[in-house]
Amino acid sequence: MLQTETLSLVRTAPAPDVLEEFEKQVKTYEKAFYHFAYRLTGNHDDAEDLTQEALLKAYRAFHRFKTGTAFDRWVYQIIYRLFIDQYRKKRRRPFVASLDESPPYLDQEKPKEVPDHSKLPEDFALRHELGETIQKALLRLPEEFRAAVVLCDVQGFSYEEISNILQCSLGTVRSRIHRGRRQLREHLHPYLNGERGKKQ
């Protein structure tokens, strides 16, 4: 499947300068793309698949990309649409689990390799735990709210840019971010209170 897709795109766009340009653009934003995909999907495997598939789509449609417009926003849009499509497909497909195999979430709960910027192990543990908690709370949001909140708070886009990426009106963006944050506040409420208790 993947091979045939790759072959078809190679035949349509074989020019090396296009590939070079595309590679240059992608390498500028690669971390941000992956970060966005990870925050949407919540695990590394899906995030990698999502990023690669989105980049493949982007490369196939690169001739339609207008130079001078923002490349990252264009790719974010592709990632978001792909994610929504996949999510809908997943929701239609019933979950099938084997009784003999170990549950899949046990594999995902292995500690991920995170670069240690701080020298203190306490700091590292606290940040790791906070990140996990926030990611779990994010996954409990509806996917439209999640995308809007991540684009606003994690990627730092303005409401207008988000409305371009998500292809919806400014009012919708505003309400999605507001409702997303309100739900996050409900999910993280014990955590927020605990933090405050520690500080006091």
Partner: peptide, 19 residues
Amino acid sequence: RIKKYLGGLEPPPPQIDLI
């Protein structure tokens, strides 16, 4: 505070060299 937490989230490194 939630906004600050979200902004402080670090990008996770991909398990393979993705790009």
